[in-house]
């Protein structure tokens, strides 16, 4: 199997994660991330073609809870931690053009 890459475009991936970086941060992270990727590349030594992946260690059956009515968080409490609230809703900057 092909070797895994040892570097990548840090600002592009940060943008995918909706993470604005401070000036100079991408340049500081790039060599650190390259070193981490270099370390991770030792996984390439193992032939895993016939191995099943593990996503969870405990065999999970999807458990069903009892279908009973119980109180959830009151709306005021659920909204109490939001930076901006109006009329019982979270407020975010406008993101639909022309609306």
């Amino acid at each position: 199997m092909a070797d895994s890459p040892r570097s990548f475009d840090v600002p592009r991936v940060a943008a995918l994660a909706r993470l604005t970086l401070e000036p100079g941060e991408a340049d500081r992270f790039a060599p650190q991330l390259a070193r981490i990727l270099g370390y991770i590349s030792q996984l390439d030594e193992l032939d895993t073609a016939a191995i099943q992946p593990t996503s969870h260690v405990v065999p999970l059956t999807t458990p069903l809870r009892v279908d009973s009515v119980h109180a959830g968080l009151p709306r005021d409490e659920a909204l109490s931690q939001a930076p901006r609230v109006s009329d019982g809703a979270f407020v975010v900057p406008k993101f639909v053009e022309g609306a």
């Binding site: 991330l33 996984l43 390439d44």
Partner: peptide, 28 residues
């Protein structure tokens, strides 16, 4: 930030199998 960037890369299109999938198999 470093770990979010690293994790986002490991899950990004074209790299998922080489990183996340590979690591899950090594976990086995």
């Amino acid at each position: 930030k470093r770990r979010i960037i690293l994790g986002t890369f490991a899950l990004s299109e074209g790299y998922y199998d080489a990183f996340y999938g590979k690591a899950q198999k090594v976990r086995t």
